[in-house]
Design a protein around this nucleic acid. Structure first.
Lengths: 119, 119
DNA sequence: ACATATTATGCACCTAAATATATATTTATA
DNA sequence: TATAAATATATATTTAGGTGCATAATATGT
């Protein structure tokens, strides 16, 4: 599922959820009905500003349009997200992880300085 | 903070997190350096396809670019610095650590969902 | 079946992003 | 400070979304 398809799918779902016609969405958002139809059918790659208008009508945040599934998988978590998740862990689990990270880092630093001394 | 400003801010943070130059991001993504600079400075409203190329380089989902809430700013900075250091580790140490992190996260999610089922 | 509402599509025009290229400007470093 | 690296800006051209308008094509209801 491409990104434009994901967007179109989410937008269509939101419109049906609110039980609105394309014409109504058009009137409320300012996006012409024809253009809105093209967006729902993934015929175009909508601009950010257009998506903003629609997000306002559907009362959701922009990022809602890009989510494909109900919940994301851990495999694709970014480093930032991982850090956020680590923050939610209990103290004992968290400190255990941090100790391991510190250990690995300290280990690398030692190796690096050894290399530097040799060179 | 406008949407383009949010995007530019997030993208800049991600690039610095990965310690990449604009030229490197450009080479890896195919987005010309000049255009990338305009995006980081919110001089343009980037297209979805451009954002996709950058998301691939930064290894994040598209929606990461739109998040501007307190969630992203509440990141524990010390942990963030540590996780950034993971990137400098050798592959074997790195993957071992990441596996442990993912495991801890998965473990917590399981606990949380169990709690939710009980309640 | 008919009339109507809804949605999809076609077309001309406008605008802005994307690109290629070059260059200016700022920042880092020997 | 001089030099190089990194970042910002300039111009011209290409490409594609947005708009307005009209009109098919397709539901929906009486």
């Amino acid at each position: 599922m491409s990104t434009v398809e994901t967007i179109s799918s989410n937008i269509k779902k939101l419109r049906e959820l609110k039980d609105l016609s394309q014409k109504e969405v058009s009137a409320a958002s300012g996006v012409p009905q024809g253009q809105y139809s093209r967006i729902e059918n993934a015929k175009v790659e909508p601009s950010i500003s257009t998506l903003e208008k629609l997000a306002a009508v559907f009362e959701v945040s922009l990022s809602e349009f890009f989510n494909n599934g109900p919940l994301d998988e851990d495999i694709n978590l970014s480093i930032l997200e991982k850090v956020k998740m680590i923050d939610t862990l209990h103290d004992d689990e968290q400190s255990a992880l941090i100790k391991m990270i510190d250990l690995a880092i300290a280990n690398k630093k030692m190796k690096d300085s050894l290399k530097a001394m040799i060179a």
